[in-house]
Design a protein around this nucleic acid. Structure first.
Lengths: 252, 252
DNA sequence: CCAAAAGTGTTGCTCATACACCCATGT
DNA sequence: ACATGGGTGTATGAGCAACACTTTTGG
């Protein structure tokens, strides 16, 4: 067993090493970090993205993603935490899943100097989420036909996130969070067609989803439709969560 | 048409706006950025990852990814460029493709203070790439059974990059860059089995790749094998590049 | 009775899997 | 001759795509 003086010496060495490490880190150039949230929303059979008027005077006629600077000073904030904080601050929402998609760091992407931004992406049902904070003219903008009215490199960021979203929803049945608790197959199909921007065959769509066996027939019917009402289904989240591994698995 | 004084005024306004924007950006906390390159290499039918002894005294017994601080000071360096620079500096290689995978920013991931790192990933054939820079004990380490001998959060980063790689090679036939110009089907299959860490049926594997129709029969045979020599093939890069869209496309 | 969407089955194709035997070469 | 891996074919099942008619409801 080591005696005390050796232990003390080890601690002193370690402590000075850490100090050296800190000095080393401190000697490197630093840059501000922002997080941008690309919030896709589904409503009225259309896929939209949530934008605000830019904070910056230089972009006053442009739309911008929901972003802000991350608190990278102390040890306060993880990047994920920053994304959730910013989303909550900008919209009041705190029950939305965000996923990191990509980091954008072109030297000239921000007019105020070098700023690196980390893009997070999300998907929700517009009707289910009240926007409690209405600063900066929060606005749901159609994803199709998004032009050059965007500030910074936000058009590029949205495009990359949209590609990511399309791929993601084909691999995982994300869609069910976006619908009412009870929904018709027509609503489900509209959702997929809107997000993927394609038309699908109704019969094959039904078969595919019934085959997954994650739908529960509630026995209820739609109301208030001027035609034959469809059956209402619920998503079997429990069964889905239980079989999640298979969805991720590689069956080569 | 506007007269000169109006133009001058506009320029002044714009210039002061940019100054304000710069001041705004400058007022936010900053953090050093590193780039870490996860270089996977294939050789001797095994997937490996390139590691170095850590630069940091505190991690002197640990292995570390090929990383360094990014030059985020001026407008010098894009993130991609930083990744290529760092890879070249650490290994001498400048003919390797790198792709951004994910950004890691846990507050305590670096012992010297808050550092955010952006992970880039690559895949190459070990035999084809001489490591010209041999500082820091560059070492190809087997990916399977990678333990806790890694510095920082590099185990987590490697795991995420490995998952990314497996997914990627199933979607795109990346493998052909890793083989000699002329290769046997056995070599190709070994490659896939090593990367995905699975065993595959030889007959079905052949069928699958012949069906893609990207293989050119050179008419030549292997030499120096103590058994019946296999045919040698070349990859039809031209044909593949031409049909690339289909590989990315969504055929729902 | 008309409009509008719901609901339903079949067929053919492609693709993945599982599986066993003969062939060419070096030793 | 034998050991080693190369080369091949077939049968089965799953899943996808294409496609048309009847049913139910509201108006």
């Amino acid at each position: 067993m080591k005696n005390e003086s050796v232990l003390t010496e080890e601690i002193q060495v370690k402590s000075s090493v850490i100090n050296d490490t800190k000095k080393l880190v401190d000697s490197y150039p630093r840059v501000p970090i922002t997080v941008d949230c690309v919030v896709f929303g589904f409503d009225e059979n259309e896929l939209k993205v949530l934008l605000i008027r830019s904070d910056l005077e230089i972009y006053k006629d442009k739309w911008s993603l929901l972003g802000d600077f991350a608190d990278v000073a102390g040890e306060a904030e993880d990047l994920d935490a920053a994304a959730y904080r910013i989303l909550k601050h900008r919209t009041g929402m705190d029950d939305v899943f965000l996923e990191q998609v990509k980091t954008f760091g072109h030297p000239n992407r921000h007019p105020g100097g070098r700023v690196i931004t980390i893009a997070y992406c999300s998907l929700l049902n517009i009707k289910h989420h009240q926007l409690k904070v209405m600063d900066n003219e929060l606005h749901w903008h159609s994803v199709q036909g998004l032009g050059d009215e965007l500030a910074f490199d936000h058009k590029i960021i949205i495009d990359e996130c949209y590609d990511w979203l399309k791929k993601r929803i084909l691999e995982h049945p994300l869609g069910f969070n976006l619908l009412p608790e009870k929904f018709s197959l027509r609503e489900l199909q509209n959702l997929y067609e809107s997000i993927l921007n394609v038309k699908m065959d109704r019969r094959n769509f039904r078969k595919k989803f019934f085959a997954m066996d994650f739908l529960i027939d509630t026995g209820e019917l739609e109301g208030d439709v001027p035609h034959r009402p469809g059956k209402l289904y619920q998503f079997n989240f429990q069964k889905y969560n239980h079989s999640k591994k298979k969805w991720n698995g590689i069956d080569f």
